[in-house]
């Protein structure tokens, strides 16, 4: 069974972002980009499942600019077999992204399509479930571990107050979060091998976003805090401030 993993290129979380002068986008220069951390869990899940079943390819799919090839290469370097780039500029609208990805996924023979639970740039937490609806396949979100046997995938999901176990008939869709799948590192051999792995490129279909980002702003600065004091003797004053000034206890 083949597994497709949808991956996104996002700014590194350590990166300081600067809003462009027009207030509509980020200043692209000087930003370090990485594979969305949750997508790394999804890649790892796909690699482990492929290893367990002993057959089938792991295919990476991304919708992004020419630069997103870098993201695909790093996924190939840790073990994915093939990659597809849908060339275009994704927006915050996950419904538009989902339709673009489905243009490729609809004809794919993947028994399982995996996503990260969320992309840490736009944080919409929606693309995976939307793709599943478009494909008419069942979808489990926030999955921490999976097992495949006889055409059924059993998923453990992180839910409020515990773990839920869900079973889905294949083909199916899952969005992966931290749990069983700690991403592996690329070996030097992997990095070299990645250069020879197939990477297909095509233009993404034009899909207009359904809403408009009018402006990006920096969040309001928190008012400067204060050190109430040192050690346990400062506790009484802290509690007084929390009660009388902040009025939160």
């Amino acid at each position: 069974m083949n597994i497709t993993v949808c991956v996104k290129r996002v700014p590194d979380t350590e990166t300081r972002i600067r809003i462009a002068a027009d207030g509509q986008d980020l200043e692209r220069g000087g930003v370090k980009y990485v594979v969305n951390p949750y997508d790394e869990f999804a890649i790892e899940a796909a690699l482990q499942l492929a290893e367990e079943t002993g057959k089938g390819k792991v295919v990476l799919l991304t919708y992004g600019g020419e630069v997103a090839k870098e993201t695909l290469r790093s996924g190939l370097a840790i073990g994915a077999d093939e990659a597809v780039l849908l060339r275009g500029e994704p927006t915050m609208d996950g419904w538009a992204t989902a339709r673009v990805l489905v243009s490729e996924l609809a004809a794919s023979d993947a028994g399982l399509v995996l996503f990260g639970v969320k992309a840490v740039d736009d944080d919409q937490q929606q693309v995976g479930a939307m793709v599943a609806e478009l494909l008419g396949r069942p979808c489990a979100t926030a999955v921490t571990a999976m097992d495949i046997s006889e055409g059924v995938v059993t998923c453990r999901r992180a839910v409020e107050g515990g773990q839920e176990v869900v079973e889905m008939d294949l083909p199916a869709v899952a969005t992966v979060t931290k749990g069983k799948y700690e991403p592996r590192y690329a070996s030097l051999r992997g990095i070299m091998a990645a250069k020879r792995k197939p990477m297909e490129e095509k233009d993404a279909p034009e899909v207009a976003p359904g809403f408009v980002v009018e402006r990006l702003d920096y969040p309001p600065k928190r008012p400067p805090g204060r050190i109430v004091g040192e050690g346990p003797s400062a506790v009484a004053e802290l509690v007084r401030l929390l009660r009388e000034e902040a009025k939160v206890i």
Partner: peptide, 23 residues
């Protein structure tokens, strides 16, 4: 935008063929 709401809302949005703003 709770864990359950984030699981639910995108499915509803896709069925309605509408975009969704989360959180």
């Amino acid at each position: 935008a709770t864990a359950r709401g984030k699981d639910l809302a995108p499915r509803v949005a896709a069925k309605l063929e509408s975009p969704l703003l989360s959180d």
